[in-house]
Design a protein around this nucleic acid. Structure first.
Ligand SMILES: [Mn+2]
Ligand SMILES: [Mn+2]
Ligand SMILES: [Mn+2]
Ligand SMILES: [Mn+2]
Lengths: 230, 230
DNA sequence: GCCGATCATTAGTCTCCTCTAACTACCGGT
DNA sequence: ACCGGTAGTTAGAGGAGACTAATGATCGGC
């Protein structure tokens, strides 16, 4: 936490816990995943009561609304702050990967800590140093200014029909071990995959990367997003 | 704060406040400055009672001793942890200055925040990336391994006799405005200064850098350390 | 030897973050 | 209608860190 970035506007201190919650709500909502108390507890590695109390505080501060099924949704104000945290997070991920060669399965954890400690001034230096990158190592767009963020996740790999080709654009960065495995297979943003077949009843998806063929289970295919091209 | 660096050994959480206190005690003691409650409160930008309580906790954890005049001194154990914080701090300063061009009067504040968020793994990447630097932008030695740290501050510029030359080795980094001014004058580690004269009764010291002559008051000369060479 | 200034500590409060345990609300199945 | 499980919240507690106000200790000056 750097002292000078405080949510004066909403009478809420800009702590790590607050920032992390805003970021996770933003990203999950962008993926159209349900933002429930338990899902947040899981993602943030805290207990459900801890999330419950945090959501109440964020709601009181006008950053969050509760929808029908206890779910959480950011207000415009909350989304603006969340975007700022996401920007810091992804820009740091890009920096760590490009400048220091941190592998893409490690950058998330590092950025999760650094995002609260980097000043706006330093962040802008990093941005300039990298030449104002558009995407982080997972293909996630880096929010810039107030311009509309392209939070389009495209199509999930498991939705690609057999016989089609698939351009990988984004890979969800939650699971380090999965990222490591996908990288071993050569799956990362910018790569074209041939979908060769699909077993029925949730069976594995057969894909070819280069000349090698692999069977991918749902937990993996659900992480890979992009476009069907043929 | 990154979760995995906890002082298990001393039953004390490795928080920012704890780390900052250890670092400041270490550096002040290294400069042979009195480490009093009020001096720490001033340096850490907290109230005296806050320091008082922290010193009691550190003492209870065996990281600190109280000497005669209420002063604080690190135990060997405390010094070992403090060294680690100082290493993170100075290595980050060096990285920010060399890789991102952050000016030397800004690196301290940035490192003060980042030092608690950087993992050991990332720090080692930074270290390797910089080629294992020995000194930070202020000329301060970067502790490495368990080897003896050269915390020699040499001689203060105000102790240099008129007519002598003075090699600047270290500049104390506490005061940003002073660092900015000294940089404008061309005073930084590696520079040779000619001491041309000294006014009596605490008057200014006259120095020549290159061809330009300047009068420096005590607040400035006390920050500049090095060796008298002639 | 007293007086005031300075310094340190104690006392009392506050906020934030986290937990466990208990309770409640809901929902599906029988 | 009932029962059990899941999800969410409430209740209660504790630690860390911060503050102000009051109190205690120390020391120099006169
Ligand atoms: Mn974080
Ligand atoms: Mn990412
Ligand atoms: Mn710090
Ligand atoms: Mn320094």
């Amino acid at each position: 936490m750097i002292g000078d970035r405080v949510l004066d506007c909403c009478a809420l201190p800009h702590t790590s816990a607050v920032e992390d919650t805003l970021r996770v709500v933003f990203v999950r909502a962008g993926r159209s995943e349900p933002v429930s108390t338990s899902a947040l507890a899981d993602a943030l590695h805290v207990s459900a009561p801890t999330v419950s109390i945090m959501l109440k505080r964020l709601t009181a501060a006008g950053l969050l609304r509760r929808t029908d099924g206890h779910l959480a949704a950011l207000t415009d104000h909350g989304a603006a702050h969340a975007r700022d945290v996401v920007r810091r997070h992804r820009l740091l991920e890009a920096f760590l990967a490009q400048e220091l060669g941190v592998p893409w399965d490690e950058v998330h954890a590092e950025a999760d800590a650094l995002e609260h400690a980097v000043s706006d001034r330093l962040l802008d230096r990093i941005d300039r140093h990298l030449g104002r990158p558009e995407r982080d190592p997972h293909g996630d767009p880096i929010p810039r200014g107030t311009g509309g963020l392209d939070e389009d996740w495209g199509v999930r790999l498991d939705a690609a029909p057999a016989g089609s080709a698939f351009d990988v654009e984004r890979v969800y960065d939650r699971d380090s071990a999965a990222l490591r495995y996908l990288a071993d297979l050569g799956i990362h943003p910018g790569v074209r995959i041939d979908v060769t077949g699909r077993q029925p009843f949730g069976g594995p998806l057969w894909v070819r990367i280069g000349t090698i063929e692999h069977a991918l289970g749902d937990p993996l295919t659900h992480l890979v997003h992009g476009r069907v091209v043929a």
